[in-house]
Design a protein around this nucleic acid. Structure first.
Lengths: 258, 258
DNA sequence: CAGTGGTCTAGACCACACT
DNA sequence: GTGTGGTCTAGACCACTGA
């Protein structure tokens, strides 16, 4: 059965909590499950073992497994479906499609999205890219440019930089097939086994340079949203950094504050 | 003791779930607690009864109360402190200070914030304000303008519109005392008993008009972030709508995507 | 029907803060 | 020490899904 999982069972520590490395049982189990996900034990979208089975396997009560899954489900790593089971989150699931794209149409209508790849190739990382991806300046990265359209209108011009050791095989031809995969991150899941779990964004207002103005069909120097995103997979290091120019004349970046 | 709370106890329904109005016990308890908070039963920052006491009062087990509090705590309505008890969330708590302000300095350093009120007075709502606050166009609203400085630098120009039935007594003189209260929302809590619980923001890039350019010390037509925020208290209706112009030459809007 | 997650209980014990 | 929240257990029963 699952490898990282079963071999990890003995690592569980039921300890008097005074120990400096103490962490509650349910967190240890969460860590085991995270490792299993990161190791590709189960595909995105796949059914994981039932709570009862995991409890038996780990030698804890179902409530403890449940609490671990609760946390992971609130972090969008797992999805529970009553009566069916618990599944690995996927960017292909309708509710998670374009989960990280916060741009909305002003009129509130959902619009068909289309990705137009412009370029794709290796290049060397400058200081900014290296810092963002936690690699060395001069290291190779895979660079991708693309235009995102909402309906017929171009609204986002993205420049993405991807970790070479994962995305080294990426080509423009592959990206041109990408729209079939529903979304870019879904495509990355399927093709490279990398599931984006979380991201940080820094948003600024800038004046459009010639290239972006041209692609987005706005006047030179028109105000654009500049969105820098750093995206993470299950592991600690970021795997993608991108710079996106958003035309916000008929769209806006939407955010909920809790 | 607490009024809304004790009088509500009989409302709890342990029902066969087939009923169309079914909701789990812990959600009913959450609703009771929310009502108590909305009714001002406990002040922001106050200690609420212990889990054991609430369980006894509602006639349910501690685990059920716990689950209700869990949800409210993850929504930042309550704050648990091990060994001490559970407290009503307050914008005065250091971790919650400026919780809704997503603007960060590019260098990552925390800076002293200062609010400079510019104007405060009643006016009639235009269509946009009325729609945002769910009132009628022509209804009175309290309008406030202010400048927010990070260190010595002005970075945000806010125009806020507040529900008259709550903020009718607000004056410029009161706002000039506000910095003592740590933050505007903390001040609203103390002075008007309104705790902002959540908000929606819509972000765009715009060219600076003369007034904003002047106040923020940027060139006319310089790109600015326009952040429209609708803020809610415990109840359903929004109580504040604001338009903020953010200078993003040395600062950025930060967001985490899960 | 069997199998899954969802709710609820009662009780034990631990960790932490205050007095 | 007392009282608070935090963890863990075992077991009962409900709700939903699909064979």
């Amino acid at each position: 059965m699952s490898d990282a999982l079963s071999s990890s069972v003995p690592h569980i520590i039921r300890q008097a909590a005074a120990s400096p490395t103490f962490s509650p049982l349910y967190r240890q189990i969460k860590t085991l499950l995270m490792n299993a996900l990161g190791a590709g034990e189960w595909e995105p979208g796949a059914l994981i073992p039932s709570e009862a089975e995991l409890a038996a396997r780990f030698g804890v009560s179902q409530g403890t497994v449940r609490k671990a899954i609760d946390e992971m489900s609130s972090e969008n790593l797992l999805v529970r479906r009553q009566g069916k089971g618990t599944f690995v989150a996927s960017h292909g699931d309708p509710p998670a499609r374009y989960r990280f794209l916060r741009l909305r149409s002003d009129d509130g209508l959902a619009q068909q999205k289309r990705s137009l790849p412009l370029s794709c190739g290796a290049q060397t990382a400058d200081a900014a890219i290296a810092a963002a991806l936690v690699i060395q300046p001069g290291d190779a990265v895979m660079a991708v440019e693309r235009l995102l359209c909402f309906g017929a209108r171009p609204v986002v011009f993205d420049q993405m930089f991807l970790r070479m050791e994962i995305f080294g095989e990426l080509t423009l031809a592959m990206l041109e097939q990408e729209n079939r995969a529903v979304s870019l991150y879904r495509f990355f899941e399927q093709r490279f086994g990398v599931h984006m779990t979380r991201a940080e964004e820094r948003v600024r207002a800038v004046a459009a340079q010639a290239r972006a103005a041209n692609l987005l069909e706005v006047a030179p120097n028109a105000p654009l949203l500049l969105v820098e995103r750093r995206a993470y997979a299950y592991a600690e290091h970021p795997v993608e950094w991108r710079r996106g120019f958003y035309a916000t004349d008929r769209h806006h970046y939407y955010n909920e504050l809790g």
